[in-house]
């Protein structure tokens, strides 16, 4: 079936772990937008949710770092972080190993994709799923794009990965939704945590909502690092979703800097 849904959202651990310290009105508006995205995923009646995230050394380290990896497990557990620290209780999400395998085989025709039959979810996946799939009742297929340990995959390849993912999703019988998670500009886990370049974020979102391949892939990593921090490298997940929804333009459901969450909180979808 053709891909049935494409969206993006933030995943910063403070969203749940430091919830009580945010402006309540802003926080609840953001949470409502996250739940809206979750409701729209369900309304698209997917058989599985592919979640394209940028993990933070939960499963992958510099001894053997894949640029792209897709999960092929029967189930996934998380959070790998202290549940109290993250504000999310441990839980298990069902996987879809046979479907994963078919998608991986298809994607491999265009992208040298790694796969993993073991995968512990960190906040990059747990925080979005906390809102999007609160009942953990839809099979999940995780994808990681290395955004932490350079060298990093070029932005043009992230878009191409999205195209390959779309082709694979369109080729299988199942209905598949895809969500990308990550920050736009942010400087997490530094003394600058909470700094957000709103102008840079809004310019990036203009490019993403227009699904403008040329402008989305025009950034150099040096520019991104300077203007958007090391957290800005996670735009790769948003760009991959744009690639998966090439030709579709988007709608922004929520954007607001919430400094104690350490990111400009974002919820958006592309109308495929």
């Amino acid at each position: 079936m053709p891909l049935v849904f494409a969206g993006v959202c933030s995943h910063a651990p403070g969203i749940t772990g430091r919830a009580e310290r945010a402006d309540p009105e802003l926080r609840e508006d953001f949470y409502a937008a996250m739940r809206r995205l979750g409701g729209e995923i369900r309304a698209a009646r997917p058989d599985a949710l592919v979640i394209v995230a940028a993990e933070h050394f939960a499963n992958f380290f510099m001894n053997n770092m894949p640029a792209y990896c897709m999960g092929m497990a029967e189930r996934y557990e998380g959070p790998i972080e202290d549940p109290e620290w993250l504000g999310i209780a441990p839980r298990t999400y069902p996987g879809a190993s046979a479907l994963s395998r078919r998608l991986i085989e298809r994607i491999m025709a265009r992208i040298d994709l790694a796969y993993a039959e073991e995968w512990q979810f960190d906040h990059g996946i747990m925080v979005p799923l906390h809102f999007l799939l609160p009942e953990a009742d839809l099979p999940v297929i995780p994808v990681n794009i290395n955004c932490q340990g350079p060298p990093l995959t070029p932005l043009s390849r992230a878009y191409e990965f999205g195209r390959a993912l779309r082709e694979a999703c369109d080729a299988v019988q199942e209905r598949i939704a895809v969500v990308g998670t990550g920050g736009i500009s942010h400087w997490p886990a530094t003394p600058d945590s909470g700094k957000i370049n709103e102008a840079w974020d809004r310019d990036f979102l203009d490019r993403w909502l227009a699904n403008d391949h040329a402008r989305l892939t025009a950034y150099t990593d040096a520019e991104t690092w300077r203007e958007a921090g090391q957290g800005g490298f996670e735009i790769r997940t948003f760009i991959a979703v744009a690639g998966a929804a090439e030709g579709a333009v988007g709608e922004l459901y929520f954007y607001a800097p919430i400094p104690i969450f350490a990111v400009g909180c974002t919820v958006a979808r592309l109308r495929i």
Binding site: P191, D192, S193, G229, I260
Partner: peptide
């Protein structure tokens, strides 16, 4: 590494 500070002020 990448985790340099800029102005060091942040949110707290």
């Amino acid at each position: 590494g990448l985790y340099l500070t800029t102005d060091g002020r942040g949110a707290v």
